[in-house]
């Protein structure tokens, strides 16, 4: 019975305590936020009974409605654009023998992960305002372009991971079996990379949906998204309505991330 066991990190003293502490720090605030979104009172700190009133008030709030629609529109467009670009980048960087400068290309594609977001935001603000002055256009396109750009690495990474697990000989085999390059892509590469593409698109959508910093700098007047609207509300008065919007925003995020996880798990 006293046989030697293999080393396990679980045997270290305090492992369970630290793990529980970490989960508390991560999830206790979110649980609190969700709980107080159902508060009947005006406070975000004193519980006064259960109610849907803040959800009703958010639902009826025209500004929230507009911001929500805008957020979804931007996220959909940015997710679509960045996924297409990321797919092309991933195909270009993985469906071939390793090449010189590969790491440089990876780094360039993943630039948004490395450059501080605030720097990008300031740069975009200055750059886009020049264009706005020159063209007079101040529509949603600026936000869509900016979101597409920073979503690219989030779409790129799962697609690349998927493609790297795929035998390069598959396209060769397709060509050997009379498939033209387009047919080989359509019938072999694309169906096999699809889980990665969907995962990338979902991740990009979620990332776009909750962006604050770049949106705050790039948006023109009257272009609030849900996150920037909430930020604006918090600056004035803290109301459980923000809790309700946050909780509502949490739902698609959790759903998409679960789907992302399931798609990636199926790969193995």
């Amino acid at each position: 019975m006293a046989g030697r066991r293999a080393f396990s990190v679980k045997d270290l003293p305090g492992f369970a305590t630290i793990a529980i502490a970490c989960f508390l720090v991560l999830y206790a605030p979110i649980v609190t936020l969700v709980v107080y979104s159902f508060n009947a009172g005006d406070s975000v700190a004193i519980w006064q009974g259960f109610s849907w009133r803040w959800y009703e008030s958010a639902w009826d709030n025209r500004q929230v409605q507009e911001a929500a629609i805008r957020s979804v529109a931007i996220a959909s467009a940015a997710s679509a654009i960045s996924t297409v670009l990321a797919t092309m980048a991933a195909l270009g960087t993985t469906r071939r023998a390793p090449f010189r400068g590969q790491m440089v290309i990876y780094t360039l594609i993943n630039q948004p992960l490395m450059v501080p977001e605030i720097v990008t935001a300031v740069a975009l603000l200055i750059f886009f305002s020049m264009i706005k002055i020159a063209t007079g256009y101040s529509g949603l396109a600026y936000l869509i372009v900016a979101h597409s750009a920073f979503c690219i690495p989030f779409a790129y990474l799962p697609i690349r991971a998927r493609l790297e697990g795929m035998d390069l000989t598959l396209e060769t085999a397709a060509a050997d079996l009379y498939a033209t390059p387009w047919q080989a892509f359509r019938r072999v590469t694309l169906p096999l990379m699809m889980p990665g593409v969907l995962a990338g698109a979902m991740l990009a959508f979620v990332i776009s949906l909750d962006d604050v910093v770049i949106t705050e700098f790039v948006k023109s007047a009257g272009q609030e998204t849900l996150p920037t609207y909430m930020l604006g509300q918090l600056r004035r008065a803290v109301s459980p309505e923000v809790n309700a919007i946050s909780t509502a925003l949490l739902v698609p995020t959790v759903v998409l991330l679960t789907a992302f996880y399931l798609l990636n798990r199926r790969r193995s």
């Binding site: 598959l170 060769t172 085999a173």
Partner: peptide
């Protein structure tokens, strides 16, 4: 001309 590959390269999907 068709090939039988060393890795077989069967289409997994």
């Amino acid at each position: 001309v068709n090939t039988v590959f060393q890795s077989y390269a069967l289409f997994p999907h």
